[in-house]
Computed example of a mutant assay.
Amino acid sequence: MEVFIGALDAVKERVESGRAPDLTGQETGYKYGYAALALFGAQRLEPNPRSDHVGTLKYLLEHGAPPDVPDVVGYTALHHACMAYPRADIARILLEHGADPNWQDRFGDVALNGAFQNESLDAIEVLMEFGARLDIKDADDYTPGEFFIKCGPRVTAVVQKWKRKRAGESAPLDEKTCTVCRKGGVQLKWCARCHKTWYCSKECQSAPRFLRLSLVAPLTLQAELDWPGHKLECISDSAESTVTLKPAYDGITALLPIAHTTRQLLGHPVERQPARNTRGAQVPRIPPGQTKKMIIKVQVPLSSLMSDLMVYDKKRSFVCQIRKADNPEGYRRVEQVVRTKGVAGAKAYFSAEMKSPDELVVKISEVLPEQAF
């Protein structure tokens, strides 16, 4: 109970006086270890100035309590930290003290699957940072690498970013920082031409190629990318790099966020979705004489009962279908790119420009990194 309520001084007194139980042991009929009990208190009790669950957990781990004590289901504290009421900060502490990110419960599940199910993005980041594997089979021969794609776009974006990082690859939009000064945590605007480069200000976008200290190698001077240099690499619109499509706005009654709806049905805590995320066809508003530039998501048909491409942007200011009959050649080219370069051959993100509600120009020469929508 003292561990559960985070009574650090009382726990210290017991341990240092020799009156504490075996810290490698378990308590209750569920056979919880002491690291798990400290986590449960942090997850479930209201913050109290007299309680210190994080301090209690660290003290126990530093005085002999193992991070990996499986309960009756085989869950360790790390499993519980990544499920409902996720605590990525405590997951990090457990991992820093030797918790196994790939520990399997009695059903073969790893902590990563719980983080996927609950859309615990911070927990996924921590687990991947500490080497969580995507190829571990559970009792049904199912792996996290097969499962994450079903857990929604936000989970997919995080996992795909880490897969690139582990492969020694990177994509321009993986980290949301200014291309020139590397500043993050501020409002950024992307290059309106290619949608794959971010700038924090007009000064950074238009600055000449000044030499500055590299953030990667602080003692090495290097030329940073700016607009004068970037414009040489920014892919221009051409017949080879783009496809012009005619959108259809009828026949879409509503978008169904499958992963979000599934979590609700299974009783997982979920964030409230904006009403726009479920609305149907949406004709974009384009002022006279202007165009609308955006990043779009393109989903190919997932079954033989469907035949149209589904297209929409992050804020659902634009939602449409692309029909093969209206766009025979364009449909073929877009579908081929999504099938070969998209996530699981089902969806992909592109830079696009709407010339009018009936004319959508999609830059298919480069698939953008997965976005959180």
Score class of each variant (00 low, 15 high):
Lys202Ile: 11
Pro21Asp: 02
Leu215Pro: 13
Thr28Arg: 09
Glu16His: 07
Pro208Asn: 09
Tyr85Gly: 04
Glu2Tyr: 12
Gly41Lys: 04
Leu211Lys: 11
Cys194Val: 12
Arg332Glu: 15
Arg19Asn: 11
Pro208Cys: 09
Asn113Ile: 15
Leu265Trp: 09
Lys292Thr: 05
Ala10Asp: 14
His53Leu: 04
Gln187His: 13
Glu366Thr: 14
Ala123Trp: 03
Gly185Leu: 04
Val343Phe: 02
Pro21Lys: 04
Val73Pro: 00
Leu188Phe: 00
Arg19Lys: 12
Pro144Arg: 05
Asp226Met: 06
Glu240Ser: 10
Ile235Arg: 12
Thr143Val: 05
Val69His: 00
Gln264Val: 09
Phe373Cys: 04
Leu61Thr: 04
Val311Met: 00
Leu60Arg: 00
Ala344Phe: 13
Lys324Ile: 07
Lys231Ser: 08
Lys341Met: 11
Val298Glu: 03
Gly41Glu: 03
Ala192Met: 12
Thr143Gly: 00
Gly345Tyr: 04
Lys231Thr: 11
Leu211Gln: 13
Lys293Leu: 08
Pro208Arg: 08
Glu125Val: 11
Ile252Val: 15
Ala207His: 03
Ala254Glu: 15
Lys58Asp: 08
Gln117Met: 08
Tyr249His: 08
Arg323Thr: 13
Gln43Tyr: 02
Leu57Val: 08
Cys82Phe: 03
Gly145Ile: 05
Leu8Asp: 01
His268Pro: 01
Leu37Ala: 07
Glu62Ile: 04
Ile322Glu: 00
Val216His: 12
